[in-house]
Simulated assay, not measured.
Amino acid sequence: MTETAAEPTAALRARAEIDLGALRANVRALRARAKGAAVMAVVKSDAYGHGAVPCARAALAAGATWLGTATAEEALALRAAGLSGRLLCWLWVPGGPWREAVEADIDVSLSGMWALREVTAAARAAGRPARVQLKADTGLGRNGCQPGADWAELVGEALRAEAEGLVRITGLWSHFACADEPGHPSIAAQLTRFREMVAYAEERGVRPEVRHIANSPATLTLPESHFDLVRTGIAMYGVSPSPELGTPADFGLRPVMTLSASLALVKHAPGGHGVSYGHHYVTPGETTLGLVPVGYADGIPRHASGTGPVLVGGKWRTVAGRVAMDQFVVDLGGDEPPVGTDAVLFGPGDRGEPTAEDWAQACGTIAYEIVTRIGTRVPRVHVNEREAG
């Protein structure tokens, strides 16, 4: 997990500035939308590339009461960093660190009988009950227990394990397939199925602390899905889960990450000069070229070749030619900004720079991928760690 000092003391080739003040404000905006439901701050994949530990601390300071990760290793790293409170992890494979999770008071998600068997064995070994949440597949077709006989078996066996003092069933939950597509028929169908599966479990004696299905888009647009808890991932980082739903500003959110690099070279080039591998870009006339020292090893999509937008010297430029492993080129059109000038790939957009959504559109992907893929060679510089005033 990435945790960087607030301000570097030496010049950086590139930096991802993470505005923790914006993150706290986003969490408060999401809490207001949740209207009484608790908020889980999802910090999987190093907080979507933003730095899990500082982002988790900021989210808790802003009123989130749960943290969420995909893997047990991510959850255990948060505990090792001193983060306490409720913490759920949901992606398990046989032989995972169940006992360590039980001993660290981490809620673990169960989607099948094999997982229940492994966690009860871990609870026996640890000498304490495991906190478990049963995940229902209400239509996503990914993780989660199928309705019908499979759900009945998992609920029944989990209740027996609870009666033996091996587990405490703390949650019932699921995940939407198409909450980012307004009006998609699967949304209502999944809500109905979730209510049915929750009702079945509760009729048989499950008394969960939380019931939850709402992800970021559902938190923003489907109040009927909020139940006891909402899980806010990408929205917490100020990125809209879908352009169709609205921009970050439409929801009172501000992008948290600004990615920039220092120009490593500015040089004159004649017309007809090939640029980067394959010469997919050839200068149309005499011009200047700027070298931006980040590439696909840093998480810059190779699919952005010829399309990715960059702000240099107050003007939007476009990646000229192919993105290479460590660098790419922009055509400066005759301008000569000094070497070391900031090339801003994306940020909140209020200073004229592109946004992560602009990069997603340029690459034919989603903004989630743009921020999450920024690699570990790019330092995260966390700013506004403390509340102003």
Score class of each variant (00 low, 15 high):
1 M>N: 00
12 L>G: 03
13 R>Y: 01
16 A>S: 15
18 I>P: 02
20 L>W: 10
22 A>K: 00
22 A>F: 00
22 A>E: 00
22 A>D: 03
23 L>K: 00
24 R>S: 03
25 A>S: 15
29 A>Q: 01
29 A>D: 04
34 A>M: 11
37 A>E: 04
37 A>L: 07
37 A>N: 04
37 A>S: 14
43 V>C: 12
44 K>E: 10
45 S>C: 12
47 A>G: 14
49 G>F: 00
50 H>D: 03
52 A>V: 09
53 V>K: 09
55 C>A: 13
60 L>V: 07
63 G>C: 01
69 T>M: 08
70 A>T: 08
71 T>R: 12
71 T>N: 05
72 A>V: 03
72 A>P: 14
73 E>D: 09
86 R>F: 05
87 L>C: 05
88 L>A: 06
88 L>W: 11
92 W>M: 02
93 V>K: 11
94 P>T: 01
97 P>D: 11
100 E>W: 02
100 E>Q: 15
103 E>R: 14
107 D>S: 08
107 D>T: 15
108 V>Q: 07
111 S>E: 05
114 W>R: 14
116 L>H: 01
118 E>F: 01
119 V>M: 00
127 G>T: 04
127 G>Y: 03
128 R>P: 01
130 A>K: 04
131 R>S: 09
137 D>Y: 07
137 D>I: 09
139 G>Y: 03
139 G>F: 03
141 G>I: 01
145 C>Q: 02
148 G>T: 07
148 G>A: 12
150 D>S: 14
150 D>T: 10
154 L>V: 08
154 L>T: 02
157 E>Q: 15
158 A>G: 06
158 A>P: 01
159 L>T: 02
169 I>T: 04
170 T>F: 04
171 G>I: 00
174 S>C: 12
174 S>I: 04
175 H>C: 03
187 I>P: 05
190 Q>G: 04
192 T>G: 07
197 M>S: 04
202 E>T: 15
206 V>F: 07
208 P>C: 07
214 A>N: 08
215 N>A: 15
216 S>H: 07
217 P>T: 05
222 L>W: 09
226 H>Y: 03
230 V>C: 04
230 V>Y: 01
231 R>M: 13
233 G>C: 01
235 A>M: 00
243 P>K: 02
245 L>F: 01
246 G>L: 07
253 L>T: 02
254 R>E: 13
265 L>C: 06
265 L>K: 14
274 G>L: 09
278 G>F: 12
279 H>T: 12
280 H>W: 05
282 V>Q: 05
282 V>A: 08
284 P>W: 04
289 L>N: 09
291 L>Q: 12
292 V>Q: 08
292 V>T: 10
293 P>D: 06
295 G>H: 09
303 H>M: 11
303 H>G: 11
305 S>E: 09
308 G>Q: 12
309 P>S: 08
313 G>W: 08
318 T>V: 14
327 Q>M: 07
327 Q>S: 14
329 V>T: 12
331 D>R: 13
333 G>I: 07
333 G>E: 14
334 G>V: 09
335 D>K: 09
335 D>C: 10
342 D>P: 13
348 P>S: 15
358 D>E: 10
360 A>E: 10
360 A>V: 12
361 Q>C: 08
361 Q>T: 14
361 Q>A: 15
365 T>I: 08
366 I>D: 11
366 I>W: 09
366 I>E: 13
369 E>Q: 15
371 V>K: 02
371 V>D: 06
373 R>T: 15
375 G>E: 05
375 G>W: 00
381 V>G: 02
389 G>T: 11
389 G>W: 15
